[in-house]
Design a protein around this nucleic acid. Structure first.
Length: 1119
RNA sequence: GCUCAAGUGGCGGAAUUGGUAGACGCGCUGGAUUCAAAAUCCAGUUCUUUCGAGAGUGUGGGUUCGAUUCCCACCUUGAGUACCA
């Protein structure tokens, strides 16, 4: 019986399907193992041979684990929302669901042909309403949560509201919007519902905000940072501009530190971890405030407080003394114009209570700086009333009545002069900067603000106004892309204003420059030209002084960036210190003096979650009085509405703006026609949809209980499967899918929905399979300029006679050779008059030829090439052949349709079989590495399978002997078991394929056909080549599938050797080998070796200096 | 620029607690079989060579009895990222 892969593969694929061989159970005595592939987006082009690489590797591992006695979950599904289907819909009007459905059918057929052991009963599709119902549900969970920094996890918003009700927001440590106003419990209660919702939105993990987004006009949508490559869209390379829009965002920044920490406990590739680490971009340093100089010594009355001071203030407000509490209990109920605030700051003074509307300050007497306070407050027009602690405790009512009379009869106070007013205006500015090198603060010689910085317009002097405004206009015109591309040009302009160095008190110039980015840090930097190259270049360019604060370092040519080993100088209290100490001390001093504090900054930005697309998950959101409202979970899914046109509306709304039935009836609890919007209980629904990463951020959990319609997944199934044990996919998802998915997983963990906070224990990035493109070399003929024959007509005549010539690869090595080969051909065939030969110039163009037209020896099927639909213009081209054939040039490139180098797995399966494809893809090289595909190589694995098959046959008859196997055969078998097991555990699949080949070659040489050898051998190859293994297994007399048969056990006793063929080397160079028994002592070995005639020949009469003998390994003679 | 990975025959690649470099396969060469081809089988295939042997894992150094493997410097290629303060 011949090995017929077509019949065998079809037979077993049918068997597996009918018997549900790979259906995983959520209940089992076996240990669990979860093997997952990154699910594909079903594109219209179908799979090429590069796509299944990772699936084959994971399938081998899954099958291996089944043999090892594990209950294996190995599911597959489709990431079926996405732009291509929508683009296609825009062009053709066909509903994306239909396109998607068709593409999935193709994918499924292709996947089935390769013989994967997927549990298809758990298939999921992100575009299926039964699936995205739960994506919407997770969105609601995020909306209902806030991040509590004290417990370091996400909590339900109800806990936040409780805190607001009892003590306001001053004590809350949360990840929230930056501009948060402090309010008390009473103020909270007094807020309207809408005001409360607005405040809560500043804390929710998914929130609406006006964000500057990457708007792509050509695609009509917003793109995430990772969807932009070199300033243009990843898809279609369209230009991208910055634009402000109201968008849903995800507060992923709350998880920055945990996303970083989590990397340490997962076994993921280092490069992937590195790129996540870079993406999160943690930098440790300090936040420092510089006051803007106002020409006067006096500090302002409305100075913003530093972060540290604000923190301290919150503390103070919470911990009032006994007397303070008694008085506050009386004052806090005053409303309207007589409203009092406690522990309020006026300028740099902290006052106990203040009524701003009536200019009344109430303080406890006995403060150290009382005189200064009185003077300052009087100057500012306040009426100061002071009490002692005792007065308040003993007679609070008397105190209150004094206050009341002050409210009723306000003291007429002298207002500050107009002049002072102006100074105050100038006074209130302060520039916050983030720096990673606070130790170099004495090296600051100027400051730079981003052109977009809000302070710029406020601090510029009249003299510089025109120059600054001109500069700002000029930078605004330059696109982000230009600014990125042009890093070398130094530009900037002086604002005319100065800042005060917080330590030295010296004045430093404030500049603006576009090397400072508005959206990183605070959009301002303290420039230390001696320690930062960009600051250095800027200073040099504008001739700003460059003070040197490093001991014994030359900074005449470039900045000194090294921090280790450098000693700080000229820096007051930091002088003489090294980096680490200086860093600590500088931060300590800043915190003590109150203008700076240690801070950790992250590059990771909150993720924009809205897309102006149709083919994505609709938000479960409607708007009431402009505020977003969640639709209750029991009414999900909110299904995508039908629309006529998939483009944005004419007034710029997203495609869902075209829907006629897209309003929420809050009474009937259903989506209704837009006509009903005039009703009081009907509200407009959200028009954006979710981005591509929404559905893929939690799908691995859904597989655990894919058909559950009541829950996201049952508690038991989540508890059983926990996380993915092995996840295989491409490295291109490093900062997209894999970061967002880890974020959601941590969130779901915080909320107690999933039991683990990392989604995959181990992850492997499979490398890309590259295509081997084929090239033909085409001529283009020109008439040389200035050749003397100015008659244009005759030029045309010469050219018209010349046909397109296509030259075989090996006929030329250079362009010159190419030209002469072609000319000779043209002359020989009378296409060119030899007299004109010098007038003609021939150039070479390499053209992609479809790889399917080329055989394994790089020979082009010329006839098929000419008849190929794509090559109609070369129908009459002349081919210069070598030895009767046309040889193409080869080059390795990414596999793509446009390069005509795509190889279809279906064709490979049909010709060589799925088992050959599986073996070959593994045999190409290490899984993680990029490697080129060459179809010719597949004959090696194909003939291996034939040889394997032959071991079980005598001619056409299946014949396996029941005799005892020979020692040699057992040795081969166990050597193979050991190696294959090690290889699979190490994901070194390429080497185990060679091991199989060696085993089969050796067993064939021994003519071994004993059952005792062939039975375990069948199991060994089964993960790699499951179809042939099943067939041989059943021929061996088994009724059940091979899939869960125990993996053979390695027995070391079969590998024990009695002798070793020692390599004998001289000075480390191996010269010959010598077979010696292993039980020989070192002395005996030395004696035997030294007596050997080859040794004597090598020695040439010299005496060895030393003889190294490593028993069982090597003998080295040192001369 | 920064971070990471990798450089081994004509090609894909193998070999690391430092111990016979080039396993296995492709391709190529020769042979057998065949009318012929495909398929199959056998032999050879790193380079140089005066056929004794010698050199050799990107380059140059180092450690070692011994280095593809460890250390230092450099070169090249690929990937990611970027005025990130």
């Amino acid at each position: 019986m011949q090995y017929n892969h077509l019949d065998i593969e079809k037979k077993w694929q049918k068997f597996w399907k009918e018997n549900q061989t790979f259906k995983a159970s959520n209940e089992s005595d076996k240990p669990k193992y979860y093997v997952l592939d990154m699910f594909p987006y079903p594109s219209g082009a179908g799979l090429h041979v590069g796509h299944p690489l990772g699936y084959i590797a994971s399938d081998i591992y899954a099958r291996y684990k089944r043999h090892k006695g594990f209950n294996v979950l190995h599911p597959q599904g489709y990431d079926s929302f996405g732009l291509p289907a929508e683009q296609y819909a825009i062009q053709t009007g066909q509903h994306p669901a239909k396109t998607t459905e068709e593409n999935i059918a193709t994918y499924r057929k292709q996947l089935d042909a390769i013989g994967f052991s997927f549990d298809w009963s758990r298939e999921i599709r992100t575009s299926n309403p039964e699936y995205y119902k739960w994506t919407q549900w997770i969105f609601i969970q995020l909306f209902d949560s806030w991040y509590n920094k004290d417990t370091d996890k996400a909590e339900d918003v109800s806990t936040l509201i409780k805190i607001f009700k009892t003590s306001g927001n001053a004590t809350v440590k949360a990840v929230s919007d930056e501009e948060i106003t402090i309010f008390s419990a009473d103020e909270w209660k007094a807020f309207s519902k809408i005001e409360q919702e607005e405040i809560l939105l500043q804390y929710r993990l998914t929130f609406l905000s006006d964000t500057e987004v990457n708007w792509c006009p050509a695609l009509g949508t917003v793109l995430a940072n990772d969807e932009i490559v070199n300033g243009v869209s990843e898809r279609g390379s369209h230009p991208v501009v910055r634009k402000k829009m109201t968008q849903w965002s995800m507060r992923i920044s709350a998880y920055a530190q945990r996303l970083l920490d989590g990397l340490e406990k997962i076994d993921w590739p280092q490069p992937l971890k590195d790129s996540q680490t870079n993406w999160i971009g943690r930098s440790q340093g300090a936040m420092v405030s510089f006051n803007v100089d106002n020409g006067s010594e006096k500090s302002s009355s409305e100075v913003k407080l530093t972060y540290k001071e604000l923190e301290a203030l919150k503390e103070l407000r919470q911990n009032l003394s006994k007397a303070e509490t008694i008085l506050w209990d009386e004052l806090k109920n005053k409303k309207g114009a007589s409203k009092f605030r406690k522990k309020y700051t006026i300028s740099t003074f902290l006052v106990d209570y203040v009524c701003i509307a009536k200019n009344i300050i109430i303080e406890f007497s006995g403060k150290e700086d009382e005189a200064a306070r009185t003077e300052f407050f009087n100057n500012e027009g306040f009426n100061i009333i002071r009490f002692t602690n005792e007065e308040v405790i003993e007679n609070v009512l008397g105190v209150v009545s004094k206050i009341n009379s002050a409210i009723q009869f306000p003291k007429i106070v002298e207002k500050t002069t107009k002049n002072k007013e102006i100074i105050k205006e100038e006074n209130k500015y302060k520039i916050d900067v983030f720096t990673t090198r606070p130790d170099t603060i004495f090296g600051v010689s100027f400051m730079t603000l981003a052109p977009e910085h809000e302070l710029v317009s406020k601090i510029i002097t009249d003299a510089q106004k025109a120059a600054v405004e001109e500069y700002i206009t000029a930078t605004a015109k330059r696109s982000e892309r230009d600014r990125m591309a042009d890093v070398k040009t130094i530009s900037g302009v002086f604002t005319g204003a100065y800042a005060i160095h917080p330590f030295s008190g010296k004045k430093v110039q404030i500049w603006i420059g576009d090397y400072v980015l508005a959206n990183y840090g605070t959009g301002a930097v303290m420039a230390v030209p001696c320690g930062d190259q960009r600051d250095y270049d800027f200073a040099k360019h504008f001739k700003i002084p460059i003070p040197n604060i490093f001991e014994g370092v030359d900074i005449s040519e470039a900045a000194h960036i090294d921090k280790d080993g450098t000693v700080i100088a000229n820096s007051d209290f930091l002088s003489g210190l090294k980096y680490k100490k200086a860093l600590k001390l500088s931060i300590y001093e800043m915190e003590k003096r109150g203008f700076g504090y240690g801070k950790i900054n992250y590059r990771l930005r909150d993720a924009v979650f809205s897309r102006q697309r149709y083919w994505g998950e609709p938000f479960p959101v409607y708007y009431k009085d402009g505020m977003p409202q969640m639709i209750a979970a029991e009414h999900l899914p909110i299904v995508l509405p039908k629309i006529e046109k998939y483009l944005p509306t004419e007034d710029g709304k997203p495609p869902l703006g075209n829907a006629t039935e897209w309003a929420w009836d809050s009474r009937a609890k259903k989506v209704v026609s837009n006509d009903k919007l005039k009703n009081k209980t009907v509200y407009p629904l959200e028009l954006n949809t979710m981005p591509g990463w929404a559905g893929s951020s939690w799908y691995f959990n859904r597989y655990m209980d894919a058909t559950n319609s009541n829950e996201f997944a049952s508690k038991e199934s989540l508890e059983y499967w926990k996380e993915v044990d092995l996840y295989i996919g491409g490295s291109e998802h490093a900062t997209g899918h894999l970061l967002y998915a880890r974020f959601w997983q941590k969130f779901l963990f915080d909320k107690g929905i999933v039991p683990v906070d990392e989604l995959a224990k181990k992850l492997i990035n499979q490398g890309m399979i590259l295509g081997t493109s084929a090239f033909v070399y085409k001529t283009t003929a020109f008439v040389r300029n200035g050749c003397g024959c100015s008659d244009e007509k005759s030029n045309d005549d010469i050219l018209n006679k010349i046909p397109t010539v296509i030259v075989s690869k090996s006929l030329f090595n250079s362009d010159d050779e190419f030209e002469s080969v072609v000319k000779n051909y043209l002359i020989d065939n009378n296409f060119l008059n030899p007299n004109f030969a010098d007038l003609i110039m021939i150039t070479k163009t390499a053209l992609h030829a479809d790889v399917s037209l080329v055989n394994t020896s790089d020979e082009l099927d010329v006839k098929a090439f000419k008849n190929h639909a794509l090559n109609s213009e070369y129908k009459n081209a002349k081919f210069i052949l070598e030895e009767g054939v046309y040889k193409v040039g080869r080059e390795v490139e990414k596999m793509s349709k446009s390069k005509y180098n795509v190889v279809n797995p279906d064709a490979i399966c049909a010709t060589y079989g799925a088992d050959s494809l599986r073996l070959f893809e593994m045999f190409l090289g290490p899984l993680e590495q990029a490697k080129p595909w060459k179809t010719s190589g597949i004959s090696g694995v194909s003939s291996f399978l034939k040889k394997l098959w032959k071991l079980y046959f005598n001619g056409d008859v299946f014949k396996v002997s029941d005799e005892a196997p020979t020692k040699d055969a057992l040795k081969i078998l166990h050597k193979t078991i050991k190696k294959v097991e090690e290889d699979i555990e190490n994901f070194s699949f390429n080497t185990s394929v060679s091991t199989f080949m060696i085993a089969v070659n050796e067993l064939t040489a021994l003519k071994c056909n004993t059952r005792e050898i062939l039975t375990p051998l069948t199991v060994l190859v089964s993960p790699y080549a499951p179809h042939i293994a099943e067939e041989l297994w059943s021929l061996l007399g088994n009724k059940e599938s091979i899939s869960t048969v125990d993996f053979p056990i390695f027995e070391p006793k079969h590998l024990v050797e009695s002798a070793k063929n020692y390599p004998i080397s001289f000075n480390g160079k191996m010269r010959f080998t010598l077979e010696l028994p292993l039980d020989l002592s070192k002395e005996e070995i030395e004696k035997t070796v030294m007596e050997n005639e080859k040794t004597i020949a090598q020695l040439e009469g010299k005496t060895p200096k030393k003889i190294i003998i490593v028993t069982g390994k090597i003998i080295n003679i040192v001369l």
